[in-house]
């Protein structure tokens, strides 16, 4: 979904997004969020287009964007796995869940697997503390994780992908 956009397509799509927000400084964050929602990440041409629209320099926009953990500057994998590092998860050993994910995916948090399928992310808290430890894959929350459950879930996703490519 990300790399398939050519530069002109991207700028075209962006103009459509811009219409929803007035051209003023307070639109920086909402616009960055729209861009990320549509393209999966914030790309340099997108920032340039924003800069032109808002009349704010690109470096200012990067300054704002890099402050917030939400914004990504590289395309994420198809499935974004968020492993919760909140307090409740921490005291119920989320670290061993993370360990299993690391082993299973062979990537460090913040990175994407070489097949582009999974991005592993650490998040502060997804607010499901009562079901700790939890992880979320593209927003779907998986509760009371164990190392075995992690392996199962990842296997399911991999199988789903294989089935798709098989058809």
């Amino acid at each position: 979904m990300n790399s398939s956009h050519s530069e002109s397509e991207l700028v075209f799509g962006i103009q459509e997004l811009f219409k929803k927000h007035p051209a003023r400084r307070s639109s920086i964050i909402p616009l960055l969020q729209e861009i990320q929602e549509h393209y999966g990440y914030v790309s340099p041409p997108a920032v340039d287009a924003m800069s032109e629209y808002l009349g704010v320099s690109a470096s200012e926009i990067y300054g704002v964007a890099s402050f917030y953990t939400q914004f990504k500057f590289v395309p994420p994998g198809k499935y974004v796995i968020q492993i919760c590092q909140g307090t409740a998860c921490h005291v119920r050993a989320s670290s061993i869940v993370l360990e299993a994910l690391r082993e299973e995916l062979k990537v460090e948090p913040g990175h994407t697997t070489s097949d582009g399928l999974f991005t592993l992310e650490r998040v502060a808290c997804v607010g499901c503390c009562a079901l700790a430890p939890v992880m979320a894959i593209n927003g779907k929350v998986y509760a009371q994780m164990t190392q075995d459950k992690v392996r199962e879930v990842i296997k399911e996703y991999r199988q789903k992908e294989e089935n798709k490519t098989g058809i």
Partner: peptide, 10 residues
């Protein structure tokens, strides 16, 4: 509501 371990407001 950013405190890790809190979900009242949610």
């Amino acid at each position: 509501e950013g405190d890790p371990g809190a979900f009242m407001n949610r």
